[in-house]
Design a protein around this nucleic acid. Structure first.
Length: 201
DNA sequence: CGCGGGATTGACT
DNA sequence: GTCAATCCCGCGT
């Protein structure tokens, strides 16, 4: 299945956030660059690259200037530069000094909106994902955990989500979801209660 | 240039 | 339920 086209990401942000529910996030990792525990998890006869796949089950929309929870709400800065660039690219940032979070940039260049991928359900490469998580059981139900499980870091900031090693496939809009307010943004007094979180149902 | 704090997580009481 | 970890960023001086 082909990666989702750039036009999909250029839509309004909440349509992208809900449309991504049920789609598949693919990550191709190079085993040679990873710890031995991860290589062992891939199996004795596996060398080179391994494809990890997760089904997207939780997203949140961040709406730029009107949204005081969005990193971009005061305009571009060095950190948020890629949010204002082309749709369908990864905005990856570090939170609490230790966890990476993956967003997909939405709307046309210059707008500054994105969708945070908060949860995926492991579909393929589960043992490797578990090893990347340090052997912990829960695999990818949280934005930081998901990046750890898929070996996504600041190195991926700004890359296209139509890259050979990081891409999204599926049929947007085919899965069911419910909305809730977003998590961890109580400081955003204007938009904290907006139902911009989408969870597969 | 200092400093408050974060779109989180896991360990521990 | 509480709390520490850990590192930039972004803003105010």
């Amino acid at each position: 299945m082909d990666p989702l086209p750039e036009d999909f990401y250029a839509q309004d942000t909440l349509s992208v956030a809900s449309g991504l529910i049920g789609c598949y996030l693919h990550r191709v990792v190079d085993l040679d660059s990873l710890d031995q525990s991860v290589r062992e998890a891939a199996g004795d006869r596996v060398t080179g690259r391994v494809e990890l796949v997760g089904r997207i089950v939780e997203t949140e929309g961040y709406l730029g200037l009107v949204d005081d929870a969005a990193h971009s709400h005061r305009g571009p800065t060095p950190r948020t530069r890629v949010m204002f660039e082309d749709p369908g690219h990864a905005y990856v940032y570090l939170i609490y000094g230790m966890w990476w979070c993956l967003n997909v940039v939405t709307r046309p260049a210059g707008v500054g909106e994105a969708v945070l991928i908060r949860g995926v359900e492991p579909i393929r490469g589960t043992p490797v994902m578990k090893a990347l998580r340090g052997g912990r059981k829960a695999v990818a139900d949280g934005p930081g955990k998901l990046c750890q499980a898929l070996n996504i870091t600041g190195a991926e900031n700004g890359v296209s989500l139509r890259s050979p090693s990081l891409f999204i496939t599926g049929s947007p809009g085919k899965a069911q979801w419910v909305t809730t307010p977003r998590i961890g943004i109580d400081y955003a007094h204007k938009t904290r209660d907006e139902p911009w979180r989408f969870v597969a149902s």
